[in-house]
Nucleic acid binder design. Sequence first.
DNA 1: GCCTGTGAAGCTATTCACAGCT
DNA 2: AGCTGTGAATAGCTTCACAGGC
Lengths: 208, 208
Amino acid sequence: MTTPERVIERISLYRRLLNTLKGEGRVAIFSHQLAQLASGTAAQVRRDMMTIGVTGSPAHGYRVQDLIEAIGGYLDSVQPENVALVGIGNLGRAIMAFFQGRRPNLSIVAAFDVDPEKVGRVIHGCRCHPLEDLERVIRERDIRVGVVAVPAAVAQDVADRLARGGVRGIVNLAPVRLNVPPGVYTTYLDITMSIEKAAYFARQGAAQ
Amino acid sequence: MTTPERVIERISLYRRLLNTLKGEGRVAIFSHQLAQLASGTAAQVRRDMMTIGVTGSPAHGYRVQDLIEAIGGYLDSVQPENVALVGIGNLGRAIMAFFQGRRPNLSIVAAFDVDPEKVGRVIHGCRCHPLEDLERVIRERDIRVGVVAVPAAVAQDVADRLARGGVRGIVNLAPVRLNVPPGVYTTYLDITMSIEKAAYFARQGAAQ
DNA sequence: GCCTGTGAAGCTATTCACAGCT
DNA sequence: AGCTGTGAATAGCTTCACAGGC
């Protein structure tokens, strides 16, 4: 019953692609077309559609609007998800700018930093708190997802605080592994690893 | 003979963990210990060791130094790899700061931006060029890996330029899919997707 | 006893291929 | 004719389990 990580990733990607298509006025799409946009296969797209419970027609394929709604129903929680961002350096600001009023169902509602310079300000529509307040604010605002964008040396401490505050999902951008209590999901966005990977496959003459 | 992406990712992770261990004075490690640090299994670590051609001993496990060297021999090219960064916004600067004199075998040697304000300056030890010079500089400096950290709207254009310049590996941080000619490897670092994934699994009561 | 190295087994994910529909 | 939905087949990855060695 638990959907594999890979499938969730693809579904999230489909949604973004579909939103773009919708913006272009596209009404329907065939599996092989969506597959091409997502760098996948038609069969895989159809399997994923089964997973989220959407059904298409041989005549027109899948209705774009249906897909977007079904993906929303599958991926999103009923009430919008509150996200905390820890670390308001360049990376943190990039993420805030990026999320600025984007997703209706997912918004960064609180940011944290140790720098007294930043605390108290509102950056990209989001209030900045001192790190000491993390657990309290997380609880008050019912935040269950945290993004860790702090230097490696303090990432584990931040993760501990997030977990204590009740966060159940962490996105870690710091180049360290985190130790989290059971029940807390962690995913890593590792720039060094990605570049090393790209360098390796660049040399191998491509894969994908 | 081509190593799967998953394995390359783990090997890159092992190296980082091992470098930390080495810094702590650790000399040898058993597969189950490395597995714990990497959130994997002992059997998997041993398989990966086979892949890179390292052999351990039942008595002491694997020698940390051996592993680091073997991974270097496996992942790295003989001469250091030159990387180009396109987009010197918050995200680009975060990446530059992060790479600042880090990896011996992988360095960002050129950055590009359209902002005339940034062009000509040297940020984090790296010269900033105007976007128009991209293809020329890429060729001159024999750059084969590019990092795309520009807004979504111009990411495809940047990818086209990189590919024309001869880049064979691209790390894309913009939230769009790129169309690249065959032979160019592309990998995506998608913050939105990661947060959506974390939110989904946070709700499911964790995996991993 | 506890480790590594590895063939074999097991499992998961992807793709095939085709019936059914329009 | 060309699509979807899906059981069956395949491919790919991970884990088991054990021989061999300190």
